[in-house]
Amino acid sequence: MPIYRIAIGTPGEASHPDALKAALAEFFSMIIFVFAGQGSGMAFSKLTDGGASTPAGLISASLAHAFALFVAVSVGANISGGHVNPAVTFGAFVGGHITLLRSILYWIAQLLGSVVACLLLKFSTGGLETSAFALSSGVSSWNAVVFEIVMTFGLVYTVYATAVDPKKGNLGTIAPIAIGFIVGANILAGGAFDGASMNPAVSFGPAVVSWTWTNHWVYWLGPFIGAAIAAIVYDHIFIDDNAHQPLPANDF
């Protein structure tokens, strides 16, 4: 099991220049991702007079998030590993590819990046609402938890297969595309039910700016469980323990 490889990290790691640079990269990548993703929904709603929940709006959100995540992962890959998601960071931690202290730095940067992106959107749109994630009619909180677990499992499993696995070879060059595609596809699958977050930071920013916390716990519990399951499954079954090496500090 990969659990035995979990590492806390050293006290000096939190102030190490490389760790701080990596956290800063996560901060900017998250701004890029949330500004484009959340902004696309706001723009579509404005253009269609509140029609963001239509099929066309769902497709628009899927494409915007897929494209934005592709870019956000790409620009951060060489510095922080391009997690752009607290759940991805948690999955890397469970697999022993990042320490707890470094993970905490990433989480803080990711959450701050999301809040800043939503504040920028609110200011630049003249005060338009950055809507918090919400459950659709007929969808219970536990239905949504299952949705988030399954979708985040697919996301983190893809991250492991294309970015973390030592055997990935040239496949690593398309990791950002694959990661963006799975998020876009999951939004098409789950967006009409619970918004298809898969990312606690993406849910956190709008919740802070709009100060709406109804069922917010769903968007933390589901993604973290899904990420942990994906990390354990992929690392235990497909990554040989003898070949396992924690990735460098500037990677996952």
Score class of each variant (00 low, 15 high):
residue 161 A to K: 07
residue 175 A to M: 05
residue 25 A to R: 01
residue 71 V to G: 13
residue 235 D to V: 12
residue 78 N to H: 11
residue 242 N to S: 15
residue 225 I to K: 07
residue 59 I to G: 14
residue 175 A to E: 08
residue 231 A to Q: 01
residue 111 L to I: 13
residue 5 R to M: 11
residue 154 G to K: 04
residue 7 A to C: 03
residue 223 P to V: 02
residue 28 F to D: 03
residue 95 G to M: 04
residue 201 A to M: 01
residue 226 G to H: 02
residue 225 I to M: 05
residue 125 T to D: 09
residue 141 S to K: 11
residue 30 M to F: 01
residue 95 G to K: 05
residue 14 A to T: 11
residue 34 V to N: 09
residue 41 G to C: 12
residue 172 G to I: 04
residue 4 Y to L: 15
residue 72 A to F: 04
residue 172 G to E: 02
residue 166 P to Q: 06
residue 172 G to Y: 02
residue 83 H to Q: 15
residue 147 F to N: 08
residue 102 R to D: 05
residue 144 A to S: 14
residue 26 E to V: 09
residue 241 D to H: 07
residue 237 I to G: 14
residue 166 P to K: 08
residue 64 A to Q: 05
residue 65 H to K: 05
residue 112 L to C: 14
residue 137 S to V: 14
residue 234 Y to D: 10
residue 73 V to G: 00
residue 105 L to P: 07
residue 72 A to M: 10
residue 96 G to D: 11
residue 66 A to F: 10
residue 186 N to Y: 11
residue 217 W to S: 12
residue 230 A to P: 06
residue 213 W to M: 13
residue 228 A to K: 00
residue 120 L to Q: 01
residue 101 L to R: 15
residue 59 I to Q: 03
residue 199 N to I: 05
residue 147 F to Y: 11
residue 49 D to Y: 03
residue 223 P to F: 04
residue 17 P to S: 13
residue 249 A to S: 11
residue 168 K to W: 04
residue 43 A to Y: 01
residue 124 S to G: 10
residue 195 G to M: 03
residue 226 G to N: 04
residue 76 G to P: 04
residue 219 Y to K: 09
residue 81 G to A: 06
residue 232 I to G: 07
residue 191 G to A: 09
residue 120 L to M: 13
residue 57 G to D: 01
residue 223 P to N: 08
residue 16 H to M: 10
residue 115 V to F: 02
residue 64 A to K: 04
residue 175 A to Q: 06
residue 191 G to S: 13
residue 120 L to V: 07
residue 148 E to A: 08
residue 125 T to S: 09
residue 72 A to R: 13
residue 53 S to P: 02
residue 216 H to T: 09
residue 36 A to M: 12
residue 110 Q to A: 07
residue 148 E to L: 11
residue 108 I to E: 00
residue 53 S to Y: 05
residue 100 L to R: 01
residue 92 A to S: 15
residue 216 H to D: 07
residue 157 Y to D: 06
residue 25 A to L: 01
residue 40 S to G: 08
residue 21 K to Y: 13
residue 151 M to R: 03
residue 90 F to T: 05
residue 102 R to T: 14
residue 113 G to L: 00
residue 77 A to N: 03
residue 222 G to S: 09
residue 102 R to V: 14
